[in-house]
Design a protein around this nucleic acid. Structure first.
Lengths: 169, 169
DNA sequence: AAAAATTACGTGACAAGTCATATAATTTCT
DNA sequence: AGAAATTATATGACTTGTCACGTAATTTTT
């Protein structure tokens, strides 16, 4: 019997419908589509990368800070910044200086050129957030991010603890 | 003046709090933490990669299907599968066969060995979903995925349409 | 004060995604 | 039927993200 005849369209469809309710499965697609949209908008707004945009934005909003601060705000690994910053410095977007108080830290500060790059991208990115707010009320955003909070709490649970709860089922 | 003294801890903290409500900013971290958790569990459950797990799971649940079907269910680019499948075939997890009905398609089917790899990982991954259900009711999961639906709808909107709605603000 | 632990950062290696482009097969249009 | 468009897959190039490990600086312990 050929494999063709073994394909069960209905069953495949049901599988897909089922997976629509699986948060773990949906996250990758939602994330990557969101990222894609961000990249497109940044392309229009001067060609910054996502990491660059986040960094300029943070520095603009909160002033000079360390690499650790940036990675904390952005909720990413510091290595992402470690790699992006020298490039950004070369482009003239930021200044970097070893901290006098703590020689391990590097303090990053926006330059005028960085500010100007920020200002090119900012209105477009603001438009995006506004467009989202046209579709989600403040209340809904809080509910949505509340779910993200709870989901993140779940993800914090150590793996062995998850596995040892079989009884609770 | 040294850069150290220009650091404003309070302002940085406020920035961070603000970003906690920004869905666009939160998604990357939530996604990658979820992925990390998945990878850890798979490591324990036999060492499958995420793509491999998803594929074995889908084939187990819905029977043989094409690469396109797999990528649709998994909501990812087909290239991910295109690259993973030859490896999975080499490991003996799947069979691949050109479709007789449509010579462009490749039909993928689970082998016994693939089934056995699936069965090693499955209980662990099921435990994870159960652990989630202990913290989110069915109702809440539906609300959560409902938000994901709406957010994805938003992401579907063409970029130029988002930018041209400035009036609506 | 010396030793041990922690923290900040840099860097190499890897996974999971994307897109763009190429090719072959199928379908649609004229 | 032939031409044109579409679809399925493969593959190269790239981004975002992780982790692990190394080094230097700081903090904590003894």
């Amino acid at each position: 019997m050929s494999l063709d005849s073994k394909i069960d369209r209905d069953r495949i469809q049901r599988r897909q419908n089922r997976e629509d309710l699986n948060v773990f499965s949906r996250l990758p697609a939602v994330y990557s589509t969101s990222r894609k949209q961000g990249q497109q908008l940044l392309q229009i707004g001067g060609g910054l990368s996502i990491v660059e945009w986040r960094t300029l934005w943070d520095l603009h909003e909160a002033g000079p800070m360390t690499i650790r601060d940036l990675s904390t705000i952005q909720r990413t690994d510091h290595s992402l910044l470690s790699r992006a910053l020298p490039d950004m410095k070369r482009k003239g977007y930021v200044r970097m200086e070893r901290s006098e108080e703590d020689g391990r830290q590097t303090i990053v500060e926006l330059t005028d050129e960085g500010r100007s790059a920020y200002e090119t991208a900012a209105p477009i990115m603001a438009r995006r957030r506004a467009a989202l707010r046209e579709r989600f009320s403040d209340e809904e955003i809080r509910t949505f991010t509340g779910f993200l909070d709870r989901f993140e709490e779940f993800l914090q649970i150590p793996v062995d603890q998850i596995l040892n709860q079989e009884t609770a089922e």
